[in-house]
Measured scan of single mutants.
Amino acid sequence: ETEYTFDDKREADRAAKEAQNNGLRVHVTKDGNRWKVRID
C-alpha cells in the first residue's frame, strides 16, 4: 500500500488513472485542501 499527496486534483486524478490502468486498486480522498491517492 502506497500513499501520495497532491495539491492539485488534476495531478491526483492522473496518478489514480495511471494506477488503475496498471490494474491496481486506487482510493482518492480529500484531506483539507490537498488530495491523497492510496494505492493497494
Score class of each variant (00 low, 15 high):
30 K>M: 08
21 N>W: 05
30 K>T: 08
2 T>L: 14
25 R>L: 09
10 R>K: 13
24 L>H: 14
28 V>D: 00
1 E>Y: 15
33 N>F: 05
28 V>L: 07
14 R>W: 09
30 K>Q: 12
14 R>S: 08
17 K>T: 11
9 K>W: 15
31 D>W: 02
13 D>E: 13
16 A>Y: 06
36 K>A: 06
10 R>F: 13
4 Y>C: 14
22 N>L: 12
33 N>G: 09
2 T>D: 10
16 A>K: 05
32 G>W: 00
37 V>D: 03
21 N>V: 08
27 H>A: 10
9 K>V: 09
29 T>K: 08
3 E>M: 06
27 H>K: 11
14 R>K: 12
16 A>V: 11
31 D>A: 08
12 A>R: 01
30 K>S: 08
27 H>W: 05
34 R>V: 05
23 G>H: 06
8 D>N: 13
30 K>G: 04
25 R>D: 08
1 E>G: 13
35 W>M: 04
35 W>F: 04
31 D>N: 06
7 D>A: 10
12 A>G: 01
32 G>C: 00
36 K>Q: 09
31 D>H: 08
22 N>I: 10
8 D>T: 15
6 F>I: 01
1 E>F: 15
20 Q>S: 11
37 V>S: 00
17 K>F: 09
6 F>P: 02
11 E>S: 12
31 D>Q: 07
2 T>F: 14
15 A>V: 15
3 E>I: 13
23 G>Q: 03
9 K>N: 03
11 E>M: 10
35 W>E: 04
19 A>Y: 10
20 Q>R: 15
12 A>S: 02
5 T>Q: 08
8 D>P: 00
6 F>Q: 02
9 K>C: 12
9 K>F: 14
34 R>H: 10
8 D>A: 05
33 N>E: 10
26 V>N: 02
30 K>R: 11
18 E>K: 10
21 N>E: 14
20 Q>Y: 11
12 A>Q: 00
7 D>S: 10
19 A>M: 15
8 D>E: 08
40 D>I: 15
12 A>Y: 01
32 G>I: 00
39 I>M: 05
9 K>A: 08
18 E>W: 06
20 Q>K: 12
19 A>C: 11
10 R>D: 15
21 N>A: 14
13 D>M: 15
20 Q>F: 11
13 D>Y: 14
18 E>Y: 04
19 A>H: 09
14 R>L: 12
8 D>F: 04
21 N>Q: 13
27 H>L: 11
36 K>G: 04
20 Q>W: 11
37 V>K: 00
37 V>G: 01
32 G>S: 01
25 R>E: 09
32 G>F: 00
9 K>H: 09
24 L>R: 08
10 R>S: 15
20 Q>E: 13
12 A>C: 06
32 G>H: 01
18 E>Q: 11
16 A>P: 01
28 V>I: 12
28 V>N: 00
3 E>W: 12
20 Q>I: 14
29 T>P: 00
19 A>G: 04
6 F>K: 01
12 A>H: 00
32 G>R: 00
7 D>R: 04
35 W>N: 03
28 V>Q: 02
28 V>W: 00
6 F>L: 02
7 D>H: 08
39 I>Q: 02
4 Y>Q: 09
25 R>G: 07
33 N>K: 05
16 A>L: 05
1 E>K: 11
26 V>D: 01
14 R>P: 03
